[in-house]
Structure formats: structure tokens, C-alpha cells
Design a binder for these strands. Sequence first.
DNA 1: CTATGTTTGCTGACACGACAGCAAGTCGTG
DNA 2: CACGACTTGCTGTCGTGTCAGCAAACATAG
Lengths: 161, 161
Amino acid sequence: MTPTNWLNEQEQAAWRGYREMYQVLAGTLEKQLNRDSGLSEADYTLLVVLSETPGQRLRARELRNEVGWDRSRLAHQLRRMEQRGLLVRTECETDARGTMVELTEQGRTAIVAAAPPHVEAVRAYFIDLLTPEEIATLTSITGRVVARIRAAGECDEFLNS
Amino acid sequence: MTPTNWLNEQEQAAWRGYREMYQVLAGTLEKQLNRDSGLSEADYTLLVVLSETPGQRLRARELRNEVGWDRSRLAHQLRRMEQRGLLVRTECETDARGTMVELTEQGRTAIVAAAPPHVEAVRAYFIDLLTPEEIATLTSITGRVVARIRAAGECDEFLNS
DNA sequence: CTATGTTTGCTGACACGACAGCAAGTCGTG
DNA sequence: CACGACTTGCTGTCGTGTCAGCAAACATAG
């Protein structure tokens, strides 16, 4: 029972700043996207992955690996997007359990129209405010944090097995 | 109709890294908090603000200003937390519209117990992975971004008025 | 082949947050 | 005081995300 190692002033400023930035930035970008294109961040994320795929066609499992979502979240999201005509689900030829997800023409049109203003917003509210050194630092930091958490996750799996 | 100024390789790496880090980090911390203390991030946020207030007592409007939430979100959250006995709502003496929010003994106990392991997690998965220079850089960046978005928000209000 | 365990995607139920709208209270101006 | 405009907090409704559980399809061992 060691005494708690609280955050010092600088650390707390960074942590609270990070949380505030995320909250404000995510809200702003979500609003921009929804207003300009009628898409949610979730829509946009899936559309980007699919549009970057040769054939605009991907198995649901692969899509899950790309975005790191829960099974059910993806299923719900795909159902909604299929109803709106952004994509279609068809059977997988090589594995009868699988579902293939394919971008429709409407879906391609949507992402092509949505991307430019969204990138502009990302620039205006974030990227263009950083120096190249800061961008490199940020990439380094995020890579480190993700790797650290992934490593801890592996450990947990070991413990559970 | 100028051609879109897409993100270059470094910028895209930073942006995608940032998004991935948030997703993974927020998920991990939320799980830790919920597992160790039975609290959500939203619970924790309100409890921290209240516990830092002299008298553990704050008007709902002030609480909203602190956390930057929607009116209804705060009302829903307060209702749930009141039902769980973490806080109580009483009338405001100086303004009959207002509601005073006060931490209960149980609420104080909850935050006092929840804070140490949560800070440990924040350290383990984030703060301790950064150098002091990186912490300073991060604080600078987040401050800049928040200020930029706030400024844009002011502009919008001007346009609407 | 059968039996067992795993993977894959889906569904239903619940918690949460955004939005619009409401009632009560306050403030400013005549 | 009377009137209208604004503020404050709450509720209902809807879209979204999480979780537990399901059925079908694969994989592997005997």
C-alpha cells in the first residue's frame, strides 16, 4: 500500500488539456461532418476503409480488424448504412459464415464528397496548428502509448489462458 | 473550387495515430475505472469537480461550465448518480431556478477510493511514457487547439447574432 | 463420420448522449 | 406593475454503443 503518486502540476495540465482537446475537437469535427455531408464519424470511418480497399469490397471480419470495433457495433452500423444505401452485404464465397461488405456507387459518391471538407476541418482545427517537429513528436507518442496498451493486453490474455 | 490540400504522409500518420490512441486509451481507462471502482468516466468527472469544490457543493450551472456538457446530459447523469446515492440535489437559495448539487458521504468515499488506481492507470498507459519535454509540448498543443476552436465558435456566434 | 470447441455474424435489451421542447423563474424596459 | 426576452433545469424521444446470448458454419481430433 504505497502512497499514491499523484500527477504534478505539469502532468495534470497535459492530461486535462488532452482530455479537453479531444472533447472539443471531436465534437467540432463530428458536427462539421454531419452538417456538410450528413455522415457520422462512424460512417466516415467505414467508408474510408472500404474506399481504400481494391474493389471497395471487404469481409466483415477484416473490416473489424481495421477499425477495432466490437462485433455487434459493426453489425448495427452496417445494417443502418445498408438501409441508407451506402453499402451492400453479400455472402462470402470462401466461408459461408462470412459476410462481404461492398461500397455502392452512392457510398463512393458520399465519401468522395465528404472527404475534402473534412480534411479541411482537420487541418484548420488541428494539423495546421502544429509544427513538423510537433507532428513527429505526436506520432512518436501515440505509437508508444498504443504499443504499451497492446502489450498490457497481451499480458492479460496470458493470465486468462 | 481549389484542389483539396490532402494530408501528407507525416500528417496522416500523426492524425491516425492520435485517433487510434484515443480510442484504445479511453477504452482501457474506462474499463479500469469501471472494474476497480464501479464508476464510469462521466461519474468520475463529476465527482472530481465536486470533490475539488469547497463544501463539495456546486450549482448545476457551474458544474456545467466546468465540464462543458449539454444541459440534458448533466440532468440525466445527475439523476442516475442521485439514485445511486453518490450525490443529492437541493434547491438553490439565491435563485429558485437553480439546483444545488452536493456530494454525499458515499460519493466522497467513492471518489477517494477511485482516484488512486485511476491515476496509476493514467500514469502507466500515458503520462509515464512521456518525457517532460513531450509533456510540455502536449500542453502547448492542446491549449492552442482548444483556443482555435473556441475562437471559431465565437465567430459563429457573431454570425448568428 | 461424429463429437467437441472455435469463429463469425446477428439480435435484443439496456445505458448513454444529443436534440427539441417545456415550465418555472429572473431580468430589463416601459 | 406588466410585458417580453432570456435563463435554468427537466423530460421524452431517438440514434448509437455495449453486453450477453444465439445459430450457423468451420476446424480438429478421435
